[in-house]
Design a protein around this nucleic acid. Structure first.
Length: 487
DNA sequence: TTTTGAGTTGTTCGA
DNA sequence: GTCGAACAACTCAAA
């Protein structure tokens, strides 16, 4: 009697055991399961994970490995290229099936397609599942059959399709073959920084892994969700869920979030929160249907936009040295913790694009490297949205005024004081406009403007007029479907 | 096919 | 201080 052939479960951005359809389906076969994660930087090309993402990935894999161990299994680590790694593992273990949960990045869908047909040609059973989205992008269509480009009708259509079933529990035990194949040691992948170790702020702010994700969701639904609509825009208050990195790595899935929120019945505020899941879905939908989204503006006339070339300006923005407190606070929070409050993300993005006239791709690239929740779909769609070249984009005349945004959403300056400590002793009236502070207040606060804290790098009033006229000139040139013109 | 209503997240100006 | 209008037309989605 021959031993039953095992099933390979290829983990990717689904680093959890609960509500993991590929894992559940594999376990249900009643044969040995081989869990594997393959480091696939080379496949991702320019979109290989950035520094903060790699830090998170390390700890998330560590957590996953431990919970697999608790169920009598072990996470096998291999290096890419993935196609070879998986085929090698199939040959090595005699597996007759490979299961995984889908990814939606253009480079990944292309690669996975090729791997699937390669495996099938060699006689393997291949099955892929949805673990990352409420609905597959190809299942949400307008009446005319195309993809939605406006959020509200998209979300309305998607909501009508959702049926919330109870999330699958984690398999209680995972049968393994007599011996699981050997693999790499996680530490050898050097995903965490050393020399210098810049991750102390990340360690202080986050606990990666499935257990922490579930705990975070529970805590949010217990405490904050009922104030969500009112507090989500106040960066000095912990009013948001902070689930984004957990969702990105699939430590928790949107169906679990949806289900948990639905049984609590929090009413309108939960609806507001769930619509943020809707924006995540919308971004994936856009990335799937418009695979150029990360590189090229959705509105093609923006291809000709005359962006500034200003490495020094970009560097000042990156380091939080613009002279606008709310902008600097946001960028320093990002640098320190790998995350930035959503309201402030919009403010710093608007500042880069409209005040400095720097290309949105430069901002997206910085976020890609520094965010623990860096996500190709959300990041690309959101930067395009702020730039006005994306789907459902902001009108060109919507230019955030950084000091007004500061006084409106951080009225007592709590957020600025936390992240720009050199301004901490300014009175509330001056905290968002230090350049207009009374000289005596500056002295009392121990600030010499231009030395302890920068003067504003641009005058916002001037920058706003410049942005408006630049965008206006673009509109004059040939309309939305204009072919690239020579200057 | 044509028409119609609507469109996450803002700012400024003038009454 | 508060309020409504103007900012520009355009694209999308559905009737």
């Amino acid at each position: 009697m021959t031993k039953p052939a095992p099933t390979i479960v290829w983990f990717r951005r689904d680093l959890r055991l609960t509500d993991n359809p590929a894992l559940s389906a594999a376990a249900a076969r009643g044969r040995p399961v081989i869990p594997v994660f393959v480091l696939d930087d080379d496949d991702a090309g320019a979109w290989a994970p950035g520094g903060a993402s790699r830090w998170w990935l390390h700890h998330s894999l560590d957590a996953l490995a431990k919970s697999l161990q608790a169920r009598g299994s072990r996470l096998v680590l291999r290096r890419g290229p993935v196609a070879e790694a998986i085929e090698h593992l199939v040959a090595e273990t005699g597996a007759d099936a490979v299961y995984w949960n889908r990814r939606y990045e253009p480079w990944a869908t292309k690669r996975d397609e090729a791997i699937k047909s390669g495996l099938q040609q060699r006689g393997s059973e291949v099955r892929s599942f949805n673990a990352a989205l409420l609905q597959e992008p190809w299942n949400v269509r307008t009446g005319a059959g195309g993809p939605y480009k406006v959020f509200t009708p998209f979300w309305k259509a998607l909501r009508a399709q959702i049926d919330v079933d109870t999330p699958r529990p984690a398999p209680e035990r995972l049968p393994t073959a007599a011996g699981l194949p050997a693999g790499d040691h996680l530490d050898d992948w050097a995903l965490t920084p050393s020399r210098p170790d810049w991750a102390s702020g990340l360690r202080a702010a986050w606990v990666p892994g499935e257990a922490a994700a579930l705990q975070r969701l529970d805590g949010f639904l217990d405490d904050s969700v009922r104030h969500y609509a009112g507090q989500r825009d106040i960066p000095g208050v912990p009013g948001t869920s902070r689930l984004s990195p957990h969702l990105h790595f699939g430590e928790i899935g949107p169906r679990q979030v949806w289900h948990a929120a639905a049984i609590r019945q929090e009413g309108g505020d939960a609806d507001k929160f769930l619509s943020e899941l809707g924006w995540r879905e919308f971004s994936y939908h856009l990335l799937f249907h418009f695979p150029d989204l990360p590189e090229r503006p959705l509105r093609s006339e923006f291809q000709d936009f005359d962006w500034a070339d200003d490495p020094q300006g970009l560097a000042a923005w990156q380091r939080g040295r613009t002279g606008y407190p709310i902008v600097d606070a946001g960028l320093r929070e990002l640098w320190e913790t790998g995350w930035m409050h959503n309201r402030v993300r919009m403010v710093v993005a608007s500042f880069l694009i409209k005040d400095l006239l720097l290309p949105w791709q430069a901002g997206a690239a910085w976020f890609w490297d520094t965010l623990v929740d860096a996500d190709l779909a959300s990041n690309s769609a959101s930067w395009q949205w702020v730039a006005g070249c994306g789907a459902d984009a902001a009108p060109f005349f919507r230019v955030f005024n950084p000091s007004l945004q500061g006084t409106r959403f951080d009225p007592d300056g709590a957020y600025v004081r936390r992240w720009v400590p050199e301004l901490a002793r300014l009175p509330d009236t001056a905290i968002h406009t230090p350049w207009r502070a009374r000289p005596l207040d500056l002295v009392d606060a121990g600030i010499r403007l231009g030395r302890d804290y920068p003067e504003p790098m641009v005058d916002h009033g001037m920058a706003r007029e410049r942005a408006l006229s630049t965008f206006k000139a673009l509109r004059g040139r040939g309309g939305p479907h204009a072919v690239t013109s020579t200057p």
